[in-house]
Design a protein around this nucleic acid. Sequence first.
DNA 1: CGGATCTTTGATCACAGTCAAAAAGCGTGG
DNA 2: CCACGCTTTTTGACTGTGATCAAAGATCCG
Lengths: 257, 257
Amino acid sequence: MSLTHSPQQAAAVLPLFRDIPEREKDELLKAGRLRTLKKGEKLFRRGDALNTLYILVEGALRQYRETPDGKEVTLGMVLQGDMADGAQAFEQFDSYQWSTIAAEDSILLEYPAFWFREKVKSHNQLALNLIVAMSKQANITAIAAEQRITFSAAQRVACFLLRTCAIHSFNPKDFELPYSKGTIASALGMELETFSRTLQKLRDVGVAVQKARVTIKDVHALECFICDHCSLAGECETITTLEKSCPSGNVAFTKPA
Amino acid sequence: MSLTHSPQQAAAVLPLFRDIPEREKDELLKAGRLRTLKKGEKLFRRGDALNTLYILVEGALRQYRETPDGKEVTLGMVLQGDMADGAQAFEQFDSYQWSTIAAEDSILLEYPAFWFREKVKSHNQLALNLIVAMSKQANITAIAAEQRITFSAAQRVACFLLRTCAIHSFNPKDFELPYSKGTIASALGMELETFSRTLQKLRDVGVAVQKARVTIKDVHALECFICDHCSLAGECETITTLEKSCPSGNVAFTKPA
DNA sequence: CGGATCTTTGATCACAGTCAAAAAGCGTGG
DNA sequence: CCACGCTTTTTGACTGTGATCAAAGATCCG
């Protein structure tokens, strides 16, 4: 994965520009500017004037809010193809409602917000894509909310590990955590200390972690550990993806409960 | 508030149909059907085929998911003018991702989903309104998520009481809870027992509850109790609304901490 | 090598969940 | 009007999870 793209290359991947006629797509692409962000850099802060719309081409961002008494709550992660602020850009607000920081080195495509809003008004397919994107986002948020309530810390961590493999096509037998443990903990709605302790406990289920390197012995054992408590059950995209990539052949030891 | 409307009357209020030329609006209205729902009736269940789009004209709905082991998680409430399933209707799914039940007697406007999707494709203003609505929704969800994490049970309850007054223009000195305590507890992400106990504790801050009747002695005292921990701080719509309706004149006793 | 930052480990504690049972309210029908 | 059953709410006692505070280890980087 090189970190050099043209807007054209970048946009080819973006679901937001799907099914848009070439002519209009070109126009959209010419107006966009690529921007890189180093890990730890803030993209915008809550309260900043909302005048740019960002689409993530590569990397990962963390959305968060902070309370007056200094606590920080992670609302969600922005992954490849997501808008960093799409949900806000069309509200009545003229300032950002949450802050966004790079969880790792990232590349964004940026547009003047007012300009993009105009395009959405005139390009119907774009509006539709935007709706679909927001719809998808709402669904992810709903599931995350559910899990924060029904899942134990261990289950949330386990689910995160599997999801990570599915999203990035990692091999569960050996992969690296996508961002720092502090960030992951926060994204899962738990304290770093809890996250650390939880990783230990997961050794019993065949998860070994050394530094950022993770080894999952038996994916199916982990699934059992989680999915019985998850309302997604069979329809979980993570699971179906994993099943495809390692169709129970790669399972070393299947220990039924 | 009578429970008899024509679609025309109903739609006049709906933000989704704002700024739409009369001719098109009429067409939209003729296609919609009014439907009533008794408290406790389910509108749809997770997994049902998604073929209708619902807009709430009056009443309140509760969106929830249930896990295989029988727990129920409330995702949010649908209030006047909201779509019951807007976020889902434009996803790739063909079935509902969460269930919806009437928290009180309600009136809905319903459309065939496919038909509505077509309208959104051709009526640009409608698409825009939809985007704004989803945007608003995402924001509410984000705030709710934050509060479930940073707020104590007492603060969540207190915030809910104030919000209720603001939304329904209730007089904080004497109003009725909008739906059953079980429903409220669930919406706040806590157990009914916890909710019950919490109401007791709030007596210390001047909140008296008898059956469903609530009396808030000192709105500002309650605000102090909550808002210091809330990232919305000054920009909270609830607070600004309340300030307008009872501009610190109605405060009986201001007890600074 | 020094000083950051990030992570682990330890000990303690409070909040809210759970289980259980009593009480209050509500609707129905005799 | 009361009796009955059903749902909703309250109260009680107990418990576990994860937050918090504190300090020691790692790791990174100039």
